[in-house]
Nucleic acid binder design. Structure first.
Lengths: 168, 168
DNA sequence: CCTAGAAGGTTGTATAAGCACCCACACCTC
DNA sequence: GAGGTGTGGGTGCTTATACAACCTTCTAGG
């Protein structure tokens, strides 16, 4: 059993450790698939996805950086790469000369479309498929609670965020 | 349901996205605390922790790399840094001249001891404290299931891992 | 207006991590 | 016991990311 001397890892801590490992391993497997099949890093996929969901398929750099949890400089470089590959473009913001939009291109949309089945397959295969509906609901509840109670920023489409009237 | 136009992100997917964000944000906050208070990156903390839990306070490089989910070269460099700071030492393996042990030093143990309250405070404050016992149990159950059913490698002290006969 | 300061983005630089490759030793077969 | 294969670990190089400093433009106050 886990105890026999002083208990170094109290039970709740183990949950944290498991969570960490699970997340890392799932993410890594996702990364491998996405990279090998579509030459797309997870962060890049995330950018394309966020853009595709945004109105006008465009987002201000700053806004986008927050959504994908990247520093602004990190996003600058990521967009550089995506632009080089023709998946996004930068477009000036007419109402604020400092501002720039990252805009999803046709090619970017296509690439996102190609990659999405891979993405879904990976996430389901490593995660979602192994949970019952009930368990999934529990996860959702727990996570929602965390976002509400910690200072965590919820994803734009989670319950508690704008466009999703929770109980609907 | 969540829909109102075409639902781009089916409900289960949202769980995944929330999980990702939560994990990243918690980890980041943990990193900030650990770095600012103890000049210890999370990976470094993890290494010290694993060593402290190992018998003889030592682990083979390869073994350690697996436990902290780092590539071998990544671990080589991390141990380099920790060794430079006097927190671990390398020690030859008598039974296999190729092998090396990473060994926790006194200083490393001390540093781990200092950092642990910070670590615990962060994990609890961002995560554990916000969940009821019941929710925690649900999380544990879900994660355990994942480790069992996916090809994920469980942490050494989780249920399902070696020295831990689940029900004990 | 003109200036002070804040905000949006990019650039310089540092760091951690991974992959591919390399060397030394171990094991196995003959 | 000599050669081939595999394993443990380290090195060279590339990459993604962060932080800090920077430039430009916007906004407020005088």
């Amino acid at each position: 059993m886990t105890s026999m001397t002083a208990e170094i890892t109290p039970q709740p801590l183990i949950v944290w450790r498991m969570l960490q490992r699970a997340q890392v391993q799932i993410t890594r497997s996702l990364e491998v698939e996405l990279l090998s099949a579509h030459d797309l890093a997870p962060a890049a996929y995330d950018v394309l996805l966020q853009l595709s969901e945004a109105t006008g398929r465009r987002l201000r750099m700053n806004d986008l950086a927050e959504r994908v949890l990247l520093s602004r400089s990190g996003l600058t470089r990521l967009i550089d790469r995506l632009q080089r590959d023709g998946l996004v473009e930068r477009e000036a913001c007419t109402s604020d000369a400092r501002g720039l939009f990252a805009v999803l291109t046709e090619a970017g949309e296509r690439r996102l479309g190609e990659a999405t089945p891979t993405y879904l397959r990976a996430v389901r295969g490593q995660f979602l498929d192994h949970l019952e509906e009930e368990e999934l609901r529990q996860c959702a509840a727990v996570l929602t609670k965390l976002f509400a109670r910690c200072s965590l920023e919820a994803p734009s489409d989670s319950p508690g965020a704008a466009g999703v009237p929770a109980g609907a």
